[in-house]
Nucleic acid binder design. Structure first.
Lengths: 342, 342
DNA sequence: ATTGATATTGCAATCGATTGCAAAAAGTCA
DNA sequence: TGACTTTTTGCAATCGATTGCAATATCAAT
């Protein structure tokens, strides 16, 4: 009934051989070093005793842990669920297990979590938390810990990353709106300290410029619905002729939507709205959100795969994978209202 | 630059004492065994060398891992994000780290994951995956592994659990609808193999009976939007006079909503709809969903707390925490249309 | 100064698996 | 049969921290 933890030594005793022989017999790569009949007896005995190798012990010897730390800024944010799903999927297929930490946005707290993970001797780290110039990344590099950035990247290219093409994403959004006749387009940017905030803002401005347009930009204080609402308030208070808004992220877009409703503005009739991410359920909000889709799950998968390779190869090669986003047109964007033309 | 892993032995050499003395000086509970000045020197040296204790080694000796396995049936399902958030929050505060596994619904695969976790010597397990009679639970009990069930429970009370009061939840939903004048109410049940599916179904029937009503029930094949849509199709094809539908879960409700729209039925004007869970964003769908709110984050917190206590105390006491749900009335429910009265 | 108590420190085993090296066993060939 | 491979197995160290026990140092009291 109670934990009859079987060790290699017990198998050895039961089989009348030395523990080292058992170890070899149980390792596929070393089994050839053991006489066939002995190996069979050992394997049989191991099964009979329901042996589970103790990875703690093995890993202490081998200097690894088969553990990967995953740092998220906010588990509750729905975009991270699919990323985490992709990560978990690949990691477990590769023999690793993910330790997730909901580490927030504060560098100090993140480092605290990483130190914890370090003492657990994680083999690598996947960061979804980084800012443009991140203290944490330097911290990890210093300690020689393999790191991959996912979703957000760094300004300096110190480590590998998997992100979406933010520039293209914004181009898709702006081109779509311009194609619908919009000219006065505003942007609710994410925190400019994050790559997604800064690069999407840049992308927005570049895409607008390409059409000889300039748009108002308002930076939100965080990637939350509330921050989006707040930014939208400011935006609408300052400018009266905006016909479309591009948000740096769906959550921000929802916040914008809240303000539109609250102000009696209809979406898309009065103001068109484009989000970013296409996170779960964006097709079912009202109106269904036109947004730039990012394959988050795939993003997680690639990040995990790259990290596993990085660990196995040991080579510190830096690679940046940039995924192509895709515009999903739904109900929150429409032709520019004629009245607004005046 | 590269990983200068400091060990206790290095500190010992640098300080001119024995490793065991270092170990004691660095352990708050044993520091009193070491002369004050020596302890200070050791601590200083440890900081200078940027010492990080190797938990692998300590835990091998101590027979633990400070790791907790968390099994989810589907990371992508938005209800699990807050649960996981609550778990992570408490666990890290208690010195544990969560290993999450997206283990699906198949018992065989789940056991596979648990064996993996077992070989990593996790100190305990939090299961969000269980069915009414779960093979996995027996498996864990047999191995003496502390387990807590969260969100779903077992029919047999073999281990502690934290769940919502499903019976009350359905009563809230049904009473609300009856209060609005509805009489012909149907239920889209979750898989009856899960406690949430079965108990909510029972709760629905009991609540209906309390009003001398009987409602049609249709079991969905899973907790997904598609399964909800499928169930709704069947339901609406079989019965024509339903004025309200109670879904066992928000995702199912969204599926029902899809079918209503597709059939040209308006919600709530033609048919009222109640969900369950109040998962993120349910306030922003169209129409905003009336639903039974469950404090998922709190649920995760409590589960983690109970598991930590269980591990520390070692007592196999079984406790069942049942959280009170709360009805959140939004736009998907309305007074029964008068025409339907005929 | 001697005894006894107490405070510090060191020694060595331990947790469980892995592996280089050497010993033993088995097989090959002249 | 002896010399030489090759196969199979055992020994013992190792990973890094913890801890019971023993040894030494310190101090007080007589």
């Amino acid at each position: 009934m109670n934990r009859p933890i079987t060790t290699i030594k017990q198998i050895a005793d039961a089989t009348g051989v030395h523990p080292s022989t058992v170890s070899r017999a149980l390792d596929p790569k070393k089994r050839h070093l053991v006489a066939d009949d002995v190996a069979k007896r050992i394997v049989a005995q191991a099964e009979a005793l329901d042996y589970q190798p103790n990875r703690l012990a093995a890993n202490l010897r081998l200097g690894r842990s088969d553990l990967i730390g995953v740092l998220l800024p906010d588990i509750a944010n729905p975009v991270f669920a699919p990323i985490l799903g992709g990560i978990a999927e690949v990691l477990s297929a590769q023999g690793y297990a993910p330790i997730v930490a909901d580490a927030g946005n504060a560098s100090s707290q993140q480092i605290c979590f990483v130190e914890r993970l370090l003492s657990q001797r994680v083999d690598g780290l996947i960061l979804a938390t980084v800012s443009q110039d991140d203290e944490l990344v330097g911290f990890c590099i210093q300690r020689g810990l393999p790191v991959i950035l996912v979703n957000r990247s760094e300004a300096r290219d110190r480590v590998s990353s998997v992100v979406s093409d933010d520039d293209m994403g914004m181009r898709l959004a702006v081109d779509h709106l311009v194609g619908l006749g919009h000219r006065r387009i505003a942007h609710v940017a994410g925190p400019l300290s994050t790559s997604t905030g800064a690069l999407r803002r840049d992308g927005f401005e570049r895409a607008m410029l390409h059409h000889d347009l300039r748009g108002v930009v308002r930076e939100a204080t965080g990637y939350t619905r509330e921050a989006g609402a707040q930014a939208a308030q400011h935006l609408l208070a300052a400018t009266h002729d905006v016909t479309a808004i591009v948000a740096a992220n769906d959550l921000l877009a929802l916040g914008v939507l809240d303000v539109l409703k609250q102000r009696g503005l209809r979406c898309p009739e009065d103001i068109s709205l484009v989000g970013h991410n296409d996170m779960p359920l964006m097709d079912v909000v009202s109106p269904p959100l036109t947004t730039v889709r990012i394959e988050h799950r795939e993003m997680g998968r690639i990040a995990a795969k790259m990290l596993a390779e990085r660990i196995k190869s040991g080579s510190p090669e830096i690679r940046h994978v940039v995924l192509r986003p895709e515009l999903v047109v739904r109900g929150s964007t429409a032709f520019r209202a004629v009245e607004a033309d005046a």
